[in-house]
Computed example of a mutant assay.
Amino acid sequence: MLEGKDKRVQVLVRDNNVDQALKALKKKMQREGIFREMKLRGHYEKPSEKKAREKAEAIRRTRKLARKRAQREGLLVGKGRR
């Protein structure tokens, strides 16, 4: 994801409100996928494990898209909020 890029996440602190800035920083990092990247790099992953994980993620993404498409077309009943 971030290989070879000098990508920096920057958040401004307004009115000395560090809590709000920290919340915004965490949100940006989550969106950028930095937490996921840190978790993956925390330990060595064998190439075969990486391939299996990426394949499973692709299948999950495809199923999710198909499910959303079916909901839009009215073939499935969407989950309602309580």
Rank of each mutant, 00 (worst) to 15 (best):
K7D: 05
K27P: 00
A66D: 03
R14G: 00
R60M: 03
M38D: 02
R72L: 14
R14E: 11
R14Q: 02
N17I: 01
K7C: 03
V13T: 00
G4C: 01
R31D: 15
R31L: 10
K64I: 02
A52M: 12
K28T: 03
R67P: 01
K23Q: 12
D6V: 07
A58N: 12
V13D: 00
G78I: 05
E57N: 07
A70D: 08
A24W: 07
E57H: 06
R81C: 04
G78L: 05
M1R: 04
E49Y: 09
F35L: 10
P47W: 08
T62V: 01
S48F: 10
L75G: 06
G33K: 08
D6P: 02
A24E: 12
N16H: 04
N17S: 02
K46M: 09
E57M: 09
E37W: 10
I34K: 06
R67L: 02
R31Q: 15
I59F: 06
M38R: 12
Y44R: 08
A21L: 06
I34Y: 12
M29K: 15
P47C: 01
E3I: 06
Q30D: 12
K46Y: 14
A70F: 08
E73W: 13
L40P: 00
L40R: 11
R82K: 15
K23I: 05
L75T: 00
E73Q: 15
G80C: 11
K7L: 14
K68F: 08
R69K: 14
E49Q: 13
K64M: 06
L22R: 10
G74K: 13
P47I: 03
K26Q: 09
L2E: 09
Q10R: 08
R67I: 02
H43P: 01
L25I: 04
V9A: 03
L2I: 10
L65Y: 13
R81M: 11
E32R: 10
D19I: 11
R36K: 12
R41L: 07
D19W: 13
R69M: 07
L76Y: 15
Q71T: 06
L12M: 02
Q20M: 12
G33H: 11
E3T: 07
E32W: 09
K23H: 14
R69F: 05
G4A: 04
L65R: 15
F35M: 11
K5I: 07
Q20C: 02
N16C: 05
N17D: 15
S48I: 05
G78K: 15
Q71F: 03
A56Y: 13
L65F: 11
G74R: 14
R41A: 00
K46N: 05
Q20F: 09
R63P: 01
E73A: 13
R61K: 15
E45I: 15
